[in-house]
């Protein structure tokens, strides 16, 4: 008790002054402080993996504090960058195998880092079931994103629908800047070929998504 009193008395004046002058840092200072923390607070089995923490231009725009609105210019910029990022499979065929898409849509694993190891499997899962309802009757499905049940039934199987679906999965921000949906193709989480299978899973009339 006595020691504490002495310590506080010694620090007394400067501490009081600091307390009295405590201010909230401005956004630029906060950004600098926080980014320094990011650089110092993570580990990974390989230095290249630490790059996952770096933000690209779109992510920076889309990280608005408190869910603040994008300006028109910002939204346009994010959409433009997203559209420019879209790559199609070399074959040009955007609709693959719905059976493979079915597997991918229900696969939430792949590419995570734990205890110094990277979770490397044959391919990354599509993660769809985590956030979206898919085939009717499935219970274990999320609702962070809109339901995709009956996707093909509602939209048909035209080339333009296939292209739209492909692009939305590849980079959803081309259509909805800063959407909560990951830019699965653009970030490299999924390959163009994988996305074609997911397109098929969504629009093929034989797919469980479009069964009653």
């Amino acid at each position: 008790m006595k020691k504490t009193w002495f310590k506080w008395a010694a620090l007394g004046v400067p501490v009081l002054v600091i307390a009295g002058c405590a201010t909230y840092p401005d956004p630029a200072t906060t950004r600098r402080v926080a980014e320094k923390m990011v650089n110092e607070s993570f580990t990974a089995p390989a230095p290249a993996l630490l790059k996952r923490l770096a933000q690209d231009k779109s992510q920076q725009i889309c990280s608005k504090i408190g869910g603040a609105q994008l300006t028109q210019e910002e939204a346009a910029e994010v959409a433009r960058l997203a559209r420019a990022s879209i790559k199609y499979p070399p074959s040009g065929k955007l609709v693959g195998d719905w059976k493979r898409g079915d597997k991918l849509a229900h696969d939430g694993a792949g590419d995570r880092i734990q205890r110094g190891r990277l979770e490397k499997r044959k391919e990354n899962g599509g993660l769809c079931q985590n956030c979206h309802a898919l085939a009717p009757g499935e219970i274990n499905v999320g609702n962070v994103g809109p339901s995709l049940t009956g996707y093909g039934l509602q939209r048909g199987t035209s080339d333009s629908i296939a292209k739209l679906t492909y692009e939305r999965i590849y980079n959803a921000w081309a259509y909805s800047p800063c959407s909560n949906m990951p830019r699965l193709g653009a970030t490299g989480h999924l390959t163009p070929e994988q996305i074609t299978h997911m397109v098929a899973y969504l629009i093929d009339p034989q797919s469980p998504v479009n069964k009653k």
Partner: peptide, 30 residues
């Protein structure tokens, strides 16, 4: 303030910050 900034900070191949999953009511993953 740093914590607030980090809550909304999006990065990685999932483009996730905390707010992507924890910013709305009545949501669930699976």
């Amino acid at each position: 303030k740093a914590g607030e900034y980090l809550f909304f900070r999006r990065s990685g191949q999932t483009d996730f910050g905390c707010v992507q999953c924890h910013g709305d009511a009545n949501k669930r993953i699976r």
